[in-house]
Amino acid sequence: MRTLQYTAPRNLVVADTERTPPAAGEVQIGVAFAGLCGTDLHIFHGDMDSRVTTPLVFGHEMSGVVTAIGPHAREWAVGDRVTVMPLPWDGVCPACRAGHEHICQNLDFIGIDSPDALQERWNMPASTVVRLPESMPLDVAALVEPVAVTVHDVRRSELTIGDRVVVIGGGPIGVLIASVARHKGAEVVVIEMDERRRSQISDLGFATIDPRVTDQAGWVEEWAQGAGADVVFEVPSQFALTQAVGTTMVERGRGKIIFTASLLSFQGGINVPGYTAAKSGVAGLTRALSNEWAAHGVNVNAIAPGYTATDNTAALQADADTILASPYCPASRLRPRSSKPDDWEFAR
């Protein structure tokens, strides 16, 4: 079978490898669609060579169909439509016992620490496989994993219906956070410098701000009728933008700021890979701002990238009100266009 492998910075190879049957407790998935996220781009550029082992099959956003069943995986059947939760946690470390499985101390991030979905057939532990609603198209289902991440972010913010939410950074995760927040009943504005992104975000019905030409803090104050924003998500952009909006929260004595990334957002550099940045550094920088603003009634927190099983379930709601089926969600623009092995020929 064919696989797409990362072998060196900016070098991908299509390789033929032997197809193996699923082991005990595993299912084999015929991959239908696979997406690429920022972590995959970091891998491709060589930013994570200190962590990954080459050759590496990456790509952790996917959907597919079960093609074979290993012993002791009786809850699955050939033909089941599935996706994968690529964060196997051990369930016994202190982080897991505290309910923070996404930062398990022994976490195996599939696609970084072990092979992932850019292959024709993929053997996975049955415990990581998630059943898809029959009504969900497979190309849209490849977005379940990033949507689960944003469900986690919004859930942790504890926003309520009618809250005014500012999303700083209009990339795919920022737009999905905005979509989930509006799905939960919030009013949302997105601050983004790139003109093309702002146009696409506006087409989804969101208010947008170009911080280079608009006083974002003043705009938010007028939009919120002098009450200030209730929640700010920094996803990641320039820390100065968050400071500008956060200052109005300090003046009003209320609000929440959620940092959803890593040191990248604080340092403003594009060469700091998110998953290799020190968690202690993120915590320290967040703690400093939290200590400064807590006395003024502003809650500042950082959320490590990831999600829990509950967030994954929320991203898979089968009713008509599902997030991925919502007109607020840019699924048609973010979903993978194709995953056929013939489309990998560019890597040769």
Rank of each mutant, 00 (worst) to 15 (best):
L12I: 13
L12A: 13
V13D: 12
V14Q: 13
V14W: 09
A15I: 06
D16Y: 01
D16H: 08
D16P: 00
D16G: 03
T17N: 04
T17G: 00
E18P: 00
R19F: 02
R19A: 10
R19D: 11
T20M: 01
P21A: 13
P22N: 04
P22D: 00
P22S: 05
A23Y: 06
A23P: 01
A23Q: 14
A23I: 01
A24M: 13
A24Q: 15
G25T: 02
G25Y: 01
G25K: 06
E26F: 03
V27W: 00
V27Y: 01
Q28I: 00
Q28V: 01
I29R: 08
I29P: 13
V31T: 15
V31C: 08
A32H: 07
F33C: 07
A34F: 04
A34M: 07
L36T: 15
L36C: 15
C37W: 02
C37Q: 04
C37F: 09
G38A: 09
T39F: 10
D40S: 14
L41Y: 03
F44C: 08
F44A: 14
F44L: 15
F44S: 08
H45F: 14
D47L: 15
D47I: 00
D47M: 12
M48G: 00
M48A: 03
M48K: 01
S50R: 14
S50T: 14
R51I: 12
V52F: 10
V52W: 05
V52I: 15
V52S: 05
T53F: 02
T53S: 15
T54L: 06
V57R: 11
V57S: 07
F58C: 10
F58V: 03
G59T: 11
H60P: 11
H60R: 13
E61R: 05
M62P: 03
S63N: 02
G64D: 10
G64E: 11
V65D: 06
V65A: 09
V65S: 07
V66W: 04
V66H: 06
T67F: 00
T67H: 08
A68E: 12
I69T: 02
I69W: 04
G70N: 07
P71E: 03
P71Q: 07
P71I: 01
R74F: 04
E75L: 11
W76E: 07
A77S: 15
V78K: 14
G79Q: 08
G79W: 05
G79N: 09
